[in-house]
């Protein structure tokens, strides 16, 4: 009985060669390092409130965003956009005013994370503006639109005021 089975298997191999098709292989090993991208850029970095009178509040480009922080990270980790004031708020003839006179606000976001809502003060350390989420971590461009407002104190000197802001992208909360 066994002999007949062997014989039939052999005959099948002759009649249906595709079922017993020859094959040979060679292995390949491939590698690539995808470089990290971690950057923030601005479409407008001039924060100039122009001529302002004591007691007056000026919002740059009121009713619309003033500038956008364009953030990219493909590091696969949660990142944070933070804002901080650089140096003093400089007015006419080198006069200075208190940093609490300036406020900022996230106007809108093109991203999947969480913006901080409402008007905020600048602090002594960088202040959180946006926390990344979803595919913000995999290299998509996230646009955080911002607004800025300056209220000149009653006792301050009228004139031209400019601020400098540092935008930081960080993985530390």
């Amino acid at each position: 009985m066994k002999a007949r089975i062997y014989f039939l298997i052999f005959l099948a191999s002759l009649l249906f060669p595709a079922a017993f098709a020859d094959q040979d292989t060679e292995n390949l090993y491939a590698s690539v390092t995808v470089l990290p991208n971690f950057s923030v850029n601005l479409d407008n970095n001039l924060l100039d409130f122009g001529m302002i009178q004591p007691g007056q509040t000026v919002t740059l480009k009121e009713g619309s965003p003033y500038n956008r922080a364009i953030c990219i990270s493909n590091k696969g980790k949660i990142w944070y956009l933070k804002l901080s004031l650089v140096g003093d708020i400089i007015g006419p003839a080198g006069t200075k005013i208190d940093p609490s006179s300036v406020k900022w606000k996230v106007y809108d976001v093109q991203g999947n994370g969480s913006p901080v809502e409402g008007w905020q003060n600048f602090g002594a350390t960088p202040v959180l503006a946006y926390t990344a989420g979803g595919d913000d971590l995999t290299g998509r461009e996230v646009r955080v639109s911002l607004q800025y407002s300056l209220t000149l104190p009653d006792k301050a000197v009228a004139g031209h005021y400019v601020i400098r802001v540092l935008y930081s992208l960080t993985e530390e909360r």
Binding site: Y29, T33, R140
Partner: peptide, 10 residues
């Protein structure tokens, strides 16, 4: 939109 890192394939 590719996450950074060292990738290998066979």
């Amino acid at each position: 939109n590719q996450v950074a890192g060292s990738y290998t394939a066979n």
